[in-house]
Amino acid sequence: MRLEELWEQLEARLATWGRTHSPWAVHFNSGSCNGCDIEILATITPRYDLERFGVKIQGSPRHADILVCTGPVTRQARERLLRIYEQMPSPKFVLAVGTCAISGGVFQGCYNVVGRVDAVIPVDMYVPGCPPRPEAIIDGILKLLEKAQAEGVAT
């Protein structure tokens, strides 16, 4: 009995270690101005190099652990954002990048804008800025991973 418990604990720790040391991220622009998107892309380029932390930005939501969201959510993109979130396997995390994703920014109240990202899907970490610097985005992802590590992401 004790041995089984120990084994489960070890398994959980191993899963958490694996998940927080090589998370894959998928990026979705739900109506952003491109400013945040080019800064996210800049994080994977040589000066900032996000991949040294084991984070890889790739295309498919089905392989992703972190959803990086930019922009206010427009009415047309809302369904797509929900679908992408639902396609991601659990455990999953959402990072809202930029003022628009946090609050709607300058587009608050526009007729075709639903609003901030957390009005549509739950968000785990927010990175403010218009647009945030690549360093800030990296910091946001690392803080998210620290949080995940502390809480454990075995399931």
């Binding site: 739900s30 109506g31 922009g71 206010p72 427009t74 587009f107 007729y111 075709n112």
Partner: peptide, 11 residues
């Protein structure tokens, strides 16, 4: 198109 249509002109 239109996924990023926010209604800026009206705003």
């Amino acid at each position: 198109l239109g996924y990023a249509h926010r209604g800026i002109e009206k705003a």
